[in-house]
């Protein structure tokens, strides 16, 4: 499956999704290091996602190279499946671990709010599913693109829950803390409606606009979190980052926007080919 030069990689949506997964896994290493530093990696299991996030991108680079040169197509498939399945398991296991807190004793919304971000590990599950999808479905097809959008939808839903519970921890002290809740709720509904009503090219454009809104809100969130950390209670910036507002969390919004735009783009191409512009 060798690519055909520059024009080839521009339309190689499978590669784009693969790079998206690779970049996300690599970035998660830093994210996990910061997040689990909050309790000093209290349990040995907390190192698992860190090690996995360091190793998986290397493997995926090998898989991409194998696909690019077309010498070992089975290697591309095997590595993708292996990394994908481990990533799925890691994410699901992480949810259980994150919920193993006061929530299991109290089972209240309050304890859920202050628990470790229980939905966060699902990022691994999402990426794992993405890797499997990239190998199990014919790409770039409309069917494949719809699954891409569905996974992006899952991500936005996770972001809706996380921005709600994370900001509830400090009681939505500043009104701007409602912005990601508002924006991700629109991202969720726009992508959900996509599956239930006949969709037009104009609707896809509307979806794209909503996705761009996510990028704006996410970038603003990154700035707000960074400013909050710069004025944190500790003299150590790292400690403020570890214990304060997670600076990278809002970047999930522009990140998911990229994934959704890939899906929307591919679906859009299919729409353009239909007679009346309706899917």
């Amino acid at each position: 499956m060798a690519s055909d030069g520059v024009a080839g990689w521009r339309t190689d949506y499978v590669l784009w999704v693969e790079v998206f997964a690779l970049a996300n896994l690599a970035f998660l290493a830093l994210d996990i290091f910061i997040a689990h530093s909050e309790n000093g990696f209290l349990r040995r299991a907390e190192y698992l996602p860190l090690y996995f996030s360091l190793a998986a991108p290397v493997l995926l680079v090998a898989a991409i190279l194998a696909r690019h040169f077309g010498t070992r197509p089975r290697l591309w498939t095997a590595i993708g499946y292996a990394v994908g399945l481990v990533s799925i398991a890691l994410g699901l296991g992480g949810v259980i671990y994150h919920l193993d807190s006061q929530f299991f004793y109290e089972r209240t919304i309050r304890s859920l709010t202050y628990a470790a971000p229980f939905a966060a590990p699902l990022a691994y599950t999402g990426i794992g599913l993405l890797l499997l999808l990239n190998r199990m479905e014919a790409a770039p097809s409309e069917h494949w693109a719809k699954w891409i959008l569905f996974l992006a939808l899952g991500g936005f839903f996770g972001n809706f829950v996380l921005s709600l519970t994370d900001h509830a921890e400090n009681g939505f002290f500043h009104w701007t803390e409602w912005l990601p809740v508002l924006s991700s709720s629109f991202a969720v509904t726009f992508l959900t409606v996509f599956y239930f009503v006949p969709t037009t090219l104009r609707y896809l454009k509307a979806c794209a606009m909503v996705m761009l809104l996510q990028a704006v809100v996410g970038t603003l969130g990154f700035l707000f979190h960074a400013i909050a950390d710069l004025h944190g209670p500790s003299r150590s910036f790292f400690q403020n980052v570890v214990n304060g507002a997670p600076p990278f969390a809002p970047l999930l919004l522009p990140n998911l926007m990229l994934l959704a735009l890939i899906g929307l783009w591919v679906v859009g191409r299919s729409v353009q080919t239909t007679k009346d512009g309706r899917l």
Binding site: F186, V193, V197, T199, A206, V210
Partner: peptide, 14 residues
């Protein structure tokens, strides 16, 4: 065309 979908998405999102 597509207005219905946008309307539903906005209402549910809000």
């Amino acid at each position: 065309r597509g207005f219905g979908a946008v309307f539903i998405a906005v209402v549910i999102g809000f």
